[in-house]
């Protein structure tokens, strides 16, 4: 007997998503719960099994109060994220509008813009942060091109700028290469969004006599606003879980060479809760201001 379309669709939904549901419980939720338990214990490995020695909140106390660098690195990582996030979002938005225009060699330029996605992962980034000549070259060349000090004296001498703003501008200019190289996926997402805005809307407002400036703020920006949320979340997750993130490196070092599994799990747990809270706040803040077209 053949089931009706509707009925088949209900069963089909379960069938298609079943692999992930199994995997989610087996290979994700179960280890996650274990991680929570481990963070309150010390883990001792034997050849046939592993044992847990309860330590209460000791691991957390160690991470927050005893470990010489955890808290400082934590704050540094968060501050770095806060300064870079607006830059990455603004740059990728801008780059996407550029790449969406018609010009010769567009295909080549687009391919180049997404190249960093290929090159910036895992081992390459890890070695990059430790490689001697790369550090030296980056330091000398980035300084020459964007001239942090030159910029500072140029803007600072006029005396109109408050110091905090000056600091931010100089820092922004100096981190420009990093910003550009970590915007690949975000540009891709914005570009996809730009392509999906119906041409008719632009034609309609042009007929009404809107200037390009008005077109941007009345149509492009609101139509892309849901993607700003997507991109903000992607950027936060991407930069906080990257292999060369200082805190990730620190957690790894604690596990392999430092105070052991329990302490590193406690650190990872604090970090994870912080990421979750940040995402929640950002989501609340931005989603209220989003314009949904459909």
């Amino acid at each position: 007997m053949r089931l009706s379309f509707e009925r088949q669709k209900k069963i089909g939904g379960f069938l298609f998503t079943l692999p992930f549901v199994i995997g989610f419980f087996l290979f994700f939720l179960y280890p996650l719960i274990q991680a929570v338990i481990f963070s309150f214990n010390e883990l001792v490995l034997t050849s046939t099994t592993f044992e847990l020695q309860p330590r209460g909140w000791e691991n957390y106390r160690y991470a927050l109060q005893v470990h010489p660098e955890f808290t400082r690195t934590f704050v540094e990582v968060m501050v770095q994220l806060l300064t870079r996030l607006p830059l990455i979002i603004a740059f990728s938005f801008f780059a996407a509008t550029l790449l969406n225009q018609e010009f010769r060699g567009r295909a080549l330029v687009r391919a180049l813009f997404f190249l960093p996605v290929i090159m910036s992962a895992g081992i390459v980034m890890r070695l990059e942060t430790s490689d001697y000549s790369v550090i030296m070259l980056e330091a000398s060349r980035a300084g020459a091109i964007f001239g942090g000090n030159a910029l500072r004296s140029l803007l600072g001498d006029s005396g109109y700028m408050p110091t905090w703003l000056l600091d931010y501008v100089v820092q922004a200019a100096e981190s420009l290469p990093v910003v550009i190289r970590s915007s690949g996926v975000q540009i891709l997402i914005f570009l996809a969004g730009l392509q999906s805005i119906p041409r008719e809307i632009y034609e309609a407002v042009s007929v009404e006599g809107a200037t390009p400036w008005e077109r941007f703020w009345l149509i492009t920006f609101p139509m892309l606003s849901p993607l700003i949320l997507t991109n903000v979340i992607y950027t936060i997750v991407d930069s906080l879980t990257a292999m060369n993130n200082q805190l990730v490196v620190l957690i790894r070092d604690t596990m392999l060479r430092g105070a052991g599994y329990g302490a590193s799990m406690a650190m990872a747990m604090i970090y994870f809760v912080a990421i979750a809270i940040i995402l929640l706040i950002v989501y609340r803040l931005i989603s209220r201001r989003i314009f949904y077209y459909v």
């Binding site: 994700f28 280890p31 991680a35 747990m269």
Partner: peptide
């Protein structure tokens, strides 16, 4: 949700599993 959990958090339990 699986995306926002840092892999370092679950790597040890996964290894043990």
């Amino acid at each position: 949700f699986t995306l926002i959990v840092p892999p370092q958090l679950v790597i040890v339990p996964m290894y043990l599993n």
